[in-house]
Design a protein around this nucleic acid. Sequence first.
DNA 1: GCAAAAGTGTTATCCCTACACCCATGA
DNA 2: TCATGGGTGTAGGGATAACACTTTTGC
Lengths: 222, 222
Amino acid sequence: MPYSYEYPHPAVTTDIAVFSLHQQQLQLLLIRRGQPPYKGKWALPGGFLEIDEDLESGAKRELKEETGASDLYIEQLFTFGRPDRDPRERIISVTYFALAPAEKLSISAGSDATEAAWFPADELPELAFDHAEIILLAKERLAAKTLYSTIAFQLMPETFTLSELQSVYEILRSETLDKRNFRKWILSLNLLEETGEMRRNGNHRPAKIYRALFPDRVDMIR
Amino acid sequence: MPYSYEYPHPAVTTDIAVFSLHQQQLQLLLIRRGQPPYKGKWALPGGFLEIDEDLESGAKRELKEETGASDLYIEQLFTFGRPDRDPRERIISVTYFALAPAEKLSISAGSDATEAAWFPADELPELAFDHAEIILLAKERLAAKTLYSTIAFQLMPETFTLSELQSVYEILRSETLDKRNFRKWILSLNLLEETGEMRRNGNHRPAKIYRALFPDRVDMIR
DNA sequence: GCAAAAGTGTTATCCCTACACCCATGA
DNA sequence: TCATGGGTGTAGGGATAACACTTTTGC
């Protein structure tokens, strides 16, 4: 026990709610716990912060270790610290939420090797700790942000059609949108450019392929 | 050094940015540091989290100890954790921002006894640690929230006139508002009721006095 | 009666919503 | 030629923004 302090110190962890889209559903990445407490239960990826590591760096490191994913959109969500939230010791969890297009992530649904799996965001298994509460907040934040930001772009691959983008908005907002109004609105933001390419996708007219002009930007202009 | 851990643990503090209105200005409460580091510099009220204390309770306790204020509006702002943000040891700061009507706070501007003082939010002294960054974020959050919430009510006394309320909005948003449009809008929210009292305030027509119907509610209906 | 803040409506503009048909392709 | 999703414009309604004068009081 080589680390001693005059006053008790809580442990600090980062936990990350990573959302992606698979099979036309919003999905959340979970890890199955191999150790007690909550052994066998599912939990958010995350872990203890290293002592010389920035909070966001810690979150990204944990995510990379557990999912292989890097370079995804991440933002701080909330800090949870109920004294009894972990039975082992006092743990403060700085939580993040992250978004990534499906093809950026090496984890596949139900991969047994890593004990990580995607779950539809509205059909989650029993969760360890207070992670259900964290996930609820993350889902609320995500839904709210679709209304006033372009965060949905973070779920898109590098190029996409307007119908694909509309479909993502519809999934995130759980409602159907009018095609003409959606296109008018999204194009009026001047955040997309045509690539000049077309996507032929079946027995119908090909779709123009677009690219986000500012792929890292999440806040709307105006 | 009675508290030992197998791995190093950071310390956890809460810091609170408390805003209030005095002399028609948005003011922020600061504490002068009596000890190094940053001795003599001004800093946000706050301090170390106790080991069995919830985060928000810790913030409220620190605030009460240092300002005498309780029962004010408080919400979590962000968690700061750059490894070098405190020269003594690794410290994670869970920050809060709080609002209170002037008369709820026992601290008076420039009180030497407590070494606490109000500063106009746009004329702050040199600050300790990364507190300038924290305050910047708190100010942004406050300004943003005036646009889509009724957080401004948290700065009002129990009863007030519409002109007084408008003045608060104008200070928070740094712009003048049209009197008729402001009144139409604020009354249409159905969050105010007339007390029946009038305020006589000088050589002019007295103003109706209003009260917030749901003083703790911050989110707008609709 | 005058200065000073309280109080009060109407009009124009903009934005959002609703809504239906033709186009290009593959089979 | 037909089925399928891609692509396009306009009109109405609601909310927001602009704008000026009358009222009540204290001195």
